[in-house]
Design a protein around this nucleic acid. Structure first.
Length: 338
DNA sequence: GGTAGACCTGGACGC
DNA sequence: GCGTCCAGGTCTACC
């Protein structure tokens, strides 16, 4: 019954989107933890991705499902509103960025040539946000907190500021919206703590054009230049910069954090201080060169999935509690599911 | 250049 | 139910 009701709300525009020949929605959408963060929803039972997009001023919720279970199947998109041709193009552009549909099978094959461990499964694409801005804010909400807090911050940000679609879902706040929000309000209503001023400051930098997403997305700029520019931003340190770089499709740096240390000790068998283990983890992935983040990330995921099941069986409702309980490790709380 | 401590929130734990 | 402890990355001050 609930499924029927859900479908009834998505009787707006319906269209199909081409995917690369190796693409699988359940694998490539659930490839990085951001698929569990609002306004993204992964419906485990239906294996459908739901997300509210902002198209100009219109918030539109879309249900995205593969036409079949085969690799490279078209995606069928059902919206809760009628879209103009321009709005449809914009939604497809955002979906393309999010699911990395512009990363071809040949691009993924280059990664597999360097690290053949993931060739059979086809792992390569890492899910991200429809915009650079959302990726930056989501990264800030993942710093210095455990996963349930990151989930809560994103949920509350959408609830407080996100535009509402016809089916009642919320979009992610825009830079303009966050830029005119008082930090104290963010802290009180969204549980962002001391990140309040940093989030508003970041939003102002984007809103005023002092941060130009096009510059960061431009492949002509070197990884080093992009990294240095990211480190100039408030709330962005070495971990956040490396994470945002991988979200930009630049995999030459590993986002080293406490999970890296846990992995170094538990899986790679490294010993010594945290700083020493971290250095050894960095050295361990050095042979993977410009693809090292992906090698690192998919290696981490092997452990997550061994303990919590395949990522496409993780849903929003249970992920927060799942990843805070001690089901993943005996001696540490898992922080960032992938 | 390296390091210690403050910054917040929420889960775990002991009582 | 309450209080305490702890995890988590960035930033600033200090050596």
């Amino acid at each position: 019954v609930s499924e029927l009701k859900a479908n009834a709300r998505f009787r707006g525009s319906r269209f199909r989107v081409k995917t690369p020949r190796d693409f699988l929605l359940h694998r490539d959408a659930c490839s990085y933890g951001y698929f569990l963060l609002e306004p993204n929803r992964w419906l485990v039972r239906e294996q459908v991705f739901v997300r509210t997009f902002l198209l100009g001023k219109l918030a539109v919720t879309a249900r995205i499902a593969p036409e079949s279970g085969k690799r490279g199947a078209d995606l069928i998109v059902n919206c809760d509103a009628k879209l103009t041709a321009a709005q449809r193009r914009e939604l497809i552009a955002q979906l393309t960025r999010m699911l990395r549909l512009d990363e071809s099978a040949a691009d993924i094959a280059r990664f597999h040539k360097l690290d053949p461990r993931w060739k059979k499964l086809g792992n390569g694409r890492l899910c991200r946000s429809p915009s650079f801005f959302e990726d930056v804010i989501k990264t800030v909400t993942s710093c210095n907190v455990t996963w349930p807090s990151t989930v809560a911050m994103n949920r509350k940000l959408c609830l407080l500021l996100g535009a509402k679609s016809a089916s009642g879902h919320r979009a992610f706040p825009t830079a303009a919206q966050l830029a005119r929000t008082r930090p104290q309000k963010l802290r009180a209503r969204c549980s962002v703590g001391y990140r309040d001023a940093r989030i508003v400051e970041l939003a102002k930098l984007f809103h005023t054009g002092k941060v130009d997403p096009a510059w960061f997305e431009d492949r002509a700029n070197s990884d080093q230049a992009v990294r240095e520019a990211l480190l100039e931003l408030p709330g962005i340190g070495p971990y956040a910069a490396a994470n945002i770089m991988q979200l930009l499709g630049r995999y030459s740096h590993i986002a080293l954090d406490t999970e890296s240390v846990r992995h170094g000790r538990a899986v790679l068998g490294f010993t010594g201080s945290s700083a020493r283990v971290m250095k050894r983890v960095a050295a361990h992935f050095e042979p993977f060169g410009d693809h090292k983040f992906r090698s690192y990330w998919f290696e981490l995921r092997v452990n997550y999935e061994a303990k919590a099941g395949p990522a496409h069986t993780w849903d929003y409702a249970t992920s927060a509690s799942t990843f805070t309980s001690r089901t993943l490790t005996k001696d540490s709380r898992a922080k960032k599911p992938g």
